[in-house]
Structure formats: structure tokens, C-alpha cells
């Protein structure tokens, strides 16, 4: 039966493969020709909607691995201290390793300017209305940075604890940062981001005496979502715990 109007096409058309145009033309009945009907056929796909992003992320990953580039994707809500953490890391380790930074924000060059001041090559991606970076943006940014072998690349994602969770960029490790001025229940409120991360940095621990944030509770909540998460507690401004973070970076080289 014709799926458009329900008329009968008995003895007529059986569409099986999309490419088989010759068969389709040959098997038209006069009835079909008379009606000028359109017909439909179904293609079974079972294709992941983010297949293209994942494929390109894998290409990025292979490129990084082939050139011995250690790539981190830093994710967090706005204001958790990603850029401060990066600045301190770059200033402290700049004489030991070669670094590159990709900055993602909806607007402004502000973060790139801060990184530029540390003398590390940086490129700013402004996503406009976009709420996350994707693997094609990273591929383009990587090309224009002209990465050298044996280096470390930090990608600072758009400050957003929801959307970047879905988009693999090709990183080796995803680092989620929360600060003690946020609620300790963030991992339960935004589980996707914690489920997809490898390392969790708890920042601003110098403020612990002044805020109502229970570090053990935050870790417990995060472990409920992801039992393999590795925690590092730091104060990027005062320097507490940064050594643990540096050891973690160097252990992955």
C-alpha cells in the first residue's frame, strides 16, 4: 500500500535499497506513473548523534598521542578558578615543560590575555552563543597553534557544568574543577560532568574556614557518580596542594 495516500500498488514497487534506482524505475506500474506518487523507504541507521564529534575527537587524540602531546580538558562552572589554576600552573612549570593553551569562552579575549601574560602560546575560541567547545573547534585551534612535539596542551572549556560533558575533544584526561564557594552537592546536581571526568580538583581551599563546605561530603557525592575519580585539593591563589597537581601532570607524561 502506498504510504502517502493509501492507494494500492499491488504488483508494483518494492523499495529495498536506496541506491537501486534502476530497479525502482523498472518496476513502476502504470498506476504509479498515472498518479505521479512519491514513495518512501526506510533506512535503518542506528547512528550515534554525536558520531561526527566523536570521530574527530579520536583523530585529535591520535594526533596528540603520535606527537607526544599531553592534552587536558578543563571543565567547571564559571568562577571556579580554572584560569587562576592555569596561570599558576604555567608560571610554576614553564621552565620544565612546553605548554599551549586553548581558551574557550562565549565572548572576550580576557582569559587569553591572562594566559598570554605568562608567555605561553594561547588561542582564544569565542563560541558566541555556543555553550561548549567541540572537537572540530579544537582541531582548528590546534592547527593554528602549531603545536610542537613533547608538550602539554590545556583546553579551558566554556564555563558550564552541563553542555561540555557531552563533547569529547580528544583529551587524555578530563579535569572537573569545583570550588569550596559552591555547594558540595554539585556532583549530584550535575552528575554527567562528574561521570565523564578523570580528575576532580577542589579549588579555593584557603577559604574553607569561612564557608560551609564539607570536603569529605563533596568527595563522597562525586564518588557516588564516578567511583574512579581522583581528587586533588588546592588553592590556586595561595599555592596549597599545587604540588600534588603538578605530580599528577608529570606522572602522565
Amino acid at each position: 500500500m502506498c504510504s502517502t495516500c493509501g492507494c494500492s500498488t499491488q504488483g508494483g514497487v518494492q523499495f529495498s535499497t536506496p541506491s537501486n534506482i534502476a530497479k525502482r524505475e523498472l518496476s513502476f506500474t502504470t498506476e504509479d506513473l498515472h498518479h505521479h506518487h512519491s514513495h518512501t523507504e526506510t533506512v535503518q541507521l542506528e547512528e550515534d548523534i554525536l558520531h561526527k564529534n566523536n570521530q574527530l575527537a579520536d583523530e585529535n587524540r591520535r594526533f596528540f598521542e603520535a606527537n607526544n602531546i599531553l592534552c587536558f580538558n578543563l571543565v567547571s562552572s564559571p568562577g571556579s578558578g580554572k584560569t587562576s589554576l592555569l596561570e599558576r600552573t604555567l608560571l610554576d612549570l614553564n621552565d620544565r615543560h612546553r605548554f599551549y593553551v586553548i581558551e574557550g569562552d562565549q565572548q572576550t579575549m580576557a582569559d587569553a590575555d591572562r594566559i598570554h601574560a605568562t608567555k605561553v602560546p594561547v588561542i582564544q575560541i569565542n563560541t558566541g552563543q555556543g555553550c561548549h567547545l567541540d572537537s572540530s573547534m579544537v582541531a582548528r585551534a590546534t592547527k593554528s597553534l602549531k603545536l610542537q612535539n613533547n608538550s602539554i596542551l590545556f583546553i579551558e572549556n566554556v564555563g558550564n557544568l552541563v553542555c561540555p560533558a557531552m563533547f569529547d575533544l580528544g583529551e587524555k584526561k578530563r579535569v572537573v574543577i569545583i570550588s569550596v564557594t559552591e555547594g558540595e552537592d554539585k556532583p549530584l546536581k550535575y552528575p554527567d560532568m562528574f561521570a565523564g571526568s578523570d580528575i576532580c580538583i577542589i579549588n579555593k581551599i584557603d577559604l574553607l574556614p569561612y564557608v560551609n563546605f564539607n570536603v569529605d561530603k563533596a568527595k563522597e557525592y562525586a564518588r557516588r557518580v564516578n567511583k574512579n575519580l581522583h581528587f586533588i585539593c588546592v588553592s590556586a591563589t595561595r599555592g596549597d596542594g599545587m604540588q600534588d597537581w603538578y605530580e599528577m601532570i608529570e606522572s602522565l607524561l
Binding site: S3, F15, P18, R24, S38, H39, T40, E41, T42, V43, Q44, L45, E46, E47, D48, I49, L50
Partner: peptide
């Protein structure tokens, strides 16, 4: 998160 199938019109 998948596109399972498409019914195409000819």
C-alpha cells in the same frame, strides 16, 4: 542518543 531510522521520500 541515536538516529535509529529514516523514512525517505522519493
Amino acid at each position: 542518543m541515536k538516529v535509529k531510522s529514516l523514512e525517505l521520500i522519493f
